[in-house]
């Protein structure tokens, strides 16, 4: 690996982290809403449920009714996280043992298929196309390329794709890598406080 590539990836990662931190700080600057109504349930239990059971097919109709999209999304995100893990160990100059390499390649392959299928769905379904912005397409292409190129192991094109992806993280919808957690925490706290999350909360016997 050319040292400049390594520096480029590290600088891009720092940019992504700093950008997300700045976005988070900006959101926090809007201030917290003071709450006065007496809680009926436990906000912390609501948050735990929001990140677990509330995302399962049994609790979520949108998952139950769209299992292929759900599975594609899972595969896609598993691929992205695998590629990021691979990037980290590549930069640390650690090599993967043979059997693990196969598993990683399988995850990356599935992730690529997941990303491409979601892109295809976005392009083919008129309603989803109408909902889309160029940001949606660009974000998908950057992430999918990063996952797909990782299949072939460390290479200059892969590291360049990593740089582009990381540089774009705070600029477009990839910022949901942070705000997914922010939004879900607030959702869980809201419904937890009202005794809606977890099911059978405040008024169950």
């Amino acid at each position: 690996m050319h040292p400049l590539l390594v520096i480029g990836v590290l600088a891009s990662a720092a940019w992504a982290a700093a950008g997300l931190a700045l976005l988070h700080a900006e959101a926090r600057a809007y201030g917290q809403r003071a709450l006065h109504a007496a809680p009926a349930g436990d906000p912390a239990a609501g948050v735990r449920y929001a990140f677990t059971g509330a995302m399962s097919p049994t609790a979520k109709e949108s998952v139950r009714e769209h299992l292929p999209s759900y599975l594609a999304g899972l595969a896609y995100h598993a691929g992205i996280f695998t590629a990021l893990g691979l990037l980290a160990i590549t930069l640390a100059e650690v090599s993967l043992p043979g059997p693990l390499r196969l598993l990683v390649q399988a995850l990356l392959g599935l992730g690529t298929l997941g990303g491409l299928s979601l892109l295809l769905k976005r392009a083919l379904k008129p309603e989803l196309r109408g909902l889309s912005t160029p940001d949606d397409v660009l974000s998908n292409l950057l992430a999918t390329a990063f996952v797909a190129l990782a299949i072939f192991g460390p290479s200059t094109p892969w590291l360049l794709s990593a740089m582009l992806l990381l540089l774009y993280v705070p600029l477009g919808k990839l910022r949901h890598s942070l705000f997914f957690f922010v939004a879900r925490r607030h959702l869980g706290a809201f419904f937890g406080r009202r005794g809606v999350f977890p099911p059978g909360g405040a008024h169950g016997r």
Binding site: L23, A27, S132, H176, F179
Partner: peptide, 22 residues
């Protein structure tokens, strides 16, 4: 009207469209 939570929500949508049928 926006607080931290709303600012977070407005940054979070990925326009997946899975909400449609709900």
């Amino acid at each position: 009207h926006l607080k931290e939570a709303e600012a977070g929500f407005l940054n979070a949508c990925v326009r997946c469209g899975l909400c449609a049928d709900s």
